[in-house]
Design a protein around this nucleic acid. Structure first.
Lengths: 246, 246
DNA sequence: AAAATAGTGTCTCTAAGACAGTATATA
DNA sequence: TATATACTGTCTTAGAGACACTATTTT
């Protein structure tokens, strides 16, 4: 395959066309201890190594954008997250967003069940990566972020909150099999509200193919309670009817 | 500002990092003659000048992605569309999507009212740009498209159909002031369904800040009918409650 | 008058929300 | 026993859809 990166004939004379560095930054959200949290890392290069930033990597030759996103999580946070749901958020291409020059960044949204079990050692253990409460970040109580990541993070949070309404994305936050109580606590953490457990259950089970009941029951928590039925994800990606935010 | 495009220190030794050509491709949708139509052009350079493609341009130094999108419409279709609603669709970065080499393309979705009045002469007049029925393109009855644009186009159509449900985007397809009949025909064209005029009216006027009534009435069509009230866009961007697809 | 489009009234049905009540676990 | 969680029943109300009816225009 040709690797010619010069301007196409016909535009060269009239248009100054450049190439840009292309990067992928990942906003990984998860629910820990009942709160929505975001993964941040210290970049291992560049002008912001002492600040917190989204894990990001430059795109390599012959590497897809999705692959770059997975690599950023692996190399900067020590996360091997094959069960993470990854989707594009949007692309940030402001000419001055990176002080080193023009860098176009494709931002990804990643949603995972709690990942404590996956990780032992690595950046999460030695403090080069950490989870931060989304409530603090949105309220200004979080650390300052590198680059324009303080613009990306609110977009990621709002996208997640919004997609919980009309897609089956909430199940990406829980490991299978899960109980409807666990799923309800996902909605409560992401939206920051309390939901009526009875009405929530009715909506979830009546939404077509959202969840499918499986065999067995889950053990109650340390303070008791009736054992809960267990479910796995259904095949629906969109929710009918939607789960509207209160 | 530094324009250093070499790899950042610390990654150079371990990672082959390249720069990519970055392009913007625009899927412009409009409703003409009661049907949803897509703007396609013949590229003025590259390997696909004799095929139809989305209007696209390489991003220039110090040019924002939004500016590139507007420039693509202007230079390739002769469209000056200041009232077009432009938003990012997603970014296509497959390593082999362009035979000339690695080109990462940021795709935009553009929605406009009918543009006949804006254009006289230029590519739309001499056949280098044209509108195509979305129904034919989706059903395989359209022309073959250049690059991977046959993957972008369905994404654009589905995005438009979906955003009509829960955002106020439909008003981007009509010029102000508009009647609720015109707005209803937008929904009917984009979704490809017939809607009950009475129920549609009730939903639109009860959705908070979707449309605002203005003075005067619109003249009936050539076959008569009661003069319609006129409306302008309200300040809402999201629709509460949503306009669900039948 | 007939046809076309705009707008209102009203009925039915679904689903959301509030909340009382039942079931099954732990301490 | 008290407490916690899971689950069910029921009532009220909002909104979607079907469709009859009224209003105002053109031919």
């Amino acid at each position: 395959m040709s690797r010619d990166r010069s301007p196409a004939p016909g535009t060269a004379a009239t248009a100054p066309v450049s190439t840009c560095a292309v990067a992928v930054d990942v906003a990984l959200l998860t629910v820990r201890e009942g709160r929505l949290q975001l993964l941040l890392v210290h970049p291992d290069a560049g002008p912001y190594t002492s600040q917190w930033a989204l894990p990001g990597r430059r795109v390599r030759d012959d590497e897809s954008l999705d692959d770059t996103a997975h690599r950023a999580l692996r190399e900067l946070a020590g996360l091997r997250a094959p069960d993470a749901r990854l989707e594009q958020l949007r692309t940030y291409g402001d000419p001055s967003r990176d002080p080193r020059g023009r860098v176009v960044s494709v931002a990804y949204l990643a949603l995972t069940p709690t990942v404590e079990s996956v990780v032992d050692g690595g950046p999460l253990a030695d403090g080069r990566a950490a989870f931060f409460d989304v409530g603090a970040l949105a309220g200004g109580g979080g650390p300052p972020l590198a680059y324009d990541h303080d613009r990306i993070v609110p977009d990621a949070i709002e996208r997640a909150r919004s997609k919980l309404e009309y897609t089956a994305l909430a199940t990406a936050f829980v490991a299978e099999p899960f109980t409807l109580g666990e799923l309800r606590r996902v909605y409560e953490a992401v939206w920051g509200v309390d939901l009526d457990a009875a009405n929530f259950r009715r909506k979830v089970v009546s939404a077509r193919d959202f969840v499918v009941e499986v065999e067995g029951t889950a053990a109650p928590g340390p303070e008791g309670g009736r054992p809960a039925k267990r479910y796995r994800r259904g095949r629906a990606s969109r929710l009918h009817p939607a789960m509207l935010r209160p």
